[in-house]
């Protein structure tokens, strides 16, 4: 656990230092990396620890983006808007979770898939508040572009660090232990007195709060949001791919996955934009078949082998 904290602090410092000295393209990449890491880490709470495959990430992201966007246009301070966006996403997740967390496996996955679509329709039909299909402009920060890019990197970095810290704390906590048991055998966990319903709801709420804030920061960063952008199904699929890539139910697996996915996106896919989604599908299949425990498990195996020699 102590080692986890050291890795986290060093990693965050490295990204901060790289960002401070890098050019704007590089800063943009790092900001997206931190955002991806936050989304993947958040998905891991419900999908990895509790074993409930959620596709609600896009819903929480869009909800956070729109909550913050609308509030900022009402003149509220930006940090407060980001915080309220996280709170709003978490409350929403707890309410929805109460209704759908008795479903398991594919049924749960499909139920969560609908949530983003539902929110997207709500936004589309309330143009007075949200701008509807026309999208929503956010207030522009009156600082130079160079400073702006660094401010948003810092914001996303802090969020990613907080999310990862939450994962480290969760792993060793009573809640985390209970969630792992639910993931492996929910009825056995119940028999031993684990309140599965409460725990799953807590995990779902945790998987929403930081994603909502990520959506809010993203909205302020790009200055303009529209429903197809922030409720995009890919926002729900990518975290899952990243976690599977890196290692499900681990602390740093989601971050490794985020790095690898981002690298793939930047290096390969911009040349194959039309088959983007198909490529994600192929990756998922390959992962499940050949590397079910992710790249992180590969690292572990290697170090175990070295220890034996």
């Amino acid at each position: 656990m102590k080692r986890d904290w050291v890795i986290l602090v060093c990693g965050a410092a490295a990204i901060g230092a790289l960002g401070w000295s890098g050019d704007n393209y590089f800063i943009r990449l790092l900001t997206i990396l931190c955002m991806y890491a936050t989304l993947a880490q958040s998905w891991n709470f419900i999908g990895g620890f509790a074993g409930y495959p959620s596709f609600a990430t896009a819903a929480f992201f869009g909800l956070g983006a729109y909550t913050s966007g609308v509030l900022q246009n009402q003149g509220l301070p930006i940090l407060m808007c980001w915080g309220l966006a996280g709170l709003c996403a978490a409350v929403f997740a707890v309410l929805i979770g109460g209704a759908i967390l008795h479903l398991r496996g594919h049924y749960f996955a499909i139920a969560t898939l609908i949530i983003a679509e539902m929110l997207r329709e709500i936004v589309n039909t309330t143009p007075n508040l949200t701008g509807g299909g026309m999208g929503l402009n956010l207030p522009i920060l009156r600082i130079s572009v160079d400073v702006q890019s660094r401010v948003f990197l810092l914001a996303m970095l802090v969020l990613a660090v907080v999310t990862t810290a939450a994962a480290i704390l969760l792993q060793r906590s009573r809640l985390g232990f209970g969630l792992r048991c639910i993931q492996q055998n929910e009825s056995a966990a119940s028999i031993l007195g684990v309140n599965a319903y409460q725990y799953k709801t807590a995990a779902f709420g945790m998987s929403a709060v930081f994603v909502g804030m990520a959506g809010a920061i993203y909205a302020s960063w790009v200055n303009y949001i529209e429903p197809p952008d922030v409720f995009d199904i890919l926002i729900a699929v990518k975290p899952l791919v990243m976690v599977l890539l890196g290692g499900i139910g681990t602390i740093f697996g989601p971050i490794i996955g985020a790095m690898v996915l981002l690298a793939l996106e930047e290096l390969v896919w911009r040349n194959f934009l039309t088959v983007h989604a198909a490529a994600l599908g192929v990756i998922i299949i390959l992962l499940v078949l050949f590397l079910p425990n992710g790249l992180f498990s590969l690292l572990k195996d290697l170090s175990a082998k070295r220890a034996k020699q």
């Binding site: 048991c181 492996q184 055998n185 056995a188 119940s190 028999i191 007195g193 684990v194």
Partner: peptide, 24 residues
């Protein structure tokens, strides 16, 4: 009563098929 309540009342259940946490 809730499952937790029953356990607290001193009743433990060893279920059919054992239901262990197999990866723990």
């Amino acid at each position: 009563a809730s499952e937790a309540g029953v356990v607290s009342a001193g009743i433990a259940h060893v279920p059919e098929g054992r239901r262990l946490f197999s990866a723990m």
